[in-house]
Amino acid sequence: MDAIWIILTGTLVALCCGLLGSFLVLRQMAMVGDAISHAVLPGIVIAFLLAESRDSLPMLIGAAAVGVLVTVLIEWLHRVGRMQADASIGISYTTLFAIGIILISYFTRQVDLDQDCVLYGEIAYVPLDTWILSNGTSLGPRAVWILGGALLLILTFIGMGYKGLQLTTFDASYAATLGISTVFWHYALMSTVSLATVVSFESVGAILVVAFLIVPPATAYLLTDRLPVMLGLSALFGFLSAVLGYGLAVATNGSVAGAMAVAAGFWFILALGIHFIKKRLHAFPARRKLPESYI
């Protein structure tokens, strides 16, 4: 039973991150996703200190706000400070992460988080923390419920905002000439990514969030040239990574989160192989197609 809960948690994380990550990959903002996933740490610690409990709604929102803050910070360093874009990403998130670590070591008694957990989570403990109603019935792990809620929210966001996300990702300045606010869609996406990161953080830590934000979408991107298919495939590869990763972890007695990242990498290499084979097969007809533009 625990195995199913863990795989389910991994899958939910993979779905939340993979769907949003697809847009990050297409917007060439993968490293901003990386930055957000690290920068929510001080938010989580502070919200934890203030709310004095895990998983309360204010904590989630507060921590997610810090994630959005890092995107503002990156933007500010780049625009106002005229710093190189990559340098401003690197400096902003390391600074916030450092603040998080310092807060953890300062409030080490009050905060039930340790450094290992920050980096690779404690997905193995997910089944232990169940949601028990006042009459004593157990509804299963709390993390699953929270992740499920977040997934629902993300699905709604992508379902409703598909056109806005698609257009502002493909051609932002054209979107602006149609009167569509690119700033709105940017921050809407960043907030949702931030939320997904926060809810996934405790189960899988910062790095697996990044792995699930980037690797399944990149895998899907290699295999398709249609956006809806890409979204579907990244969900599929997320699920497959969770399953394979759990198997690996059990077999070797290692970290589940780490093994899931490795599994995601395995599917990517597989897709890369398919991609190259497809490319080779198509190479000849594609070359023949060229003159047609001169008709």
Partner: peptide
């Protein structure tokens, strides 16, 4: 970008 010709042309119909 993962899109077909038709998808891009349809973007011309998007409005706020």
């Amino acid at each position: 970008f993962p899109a077909r010709v038709k998808d891009v042309v349809l973007m011309g119909r998007y409005r706020p």
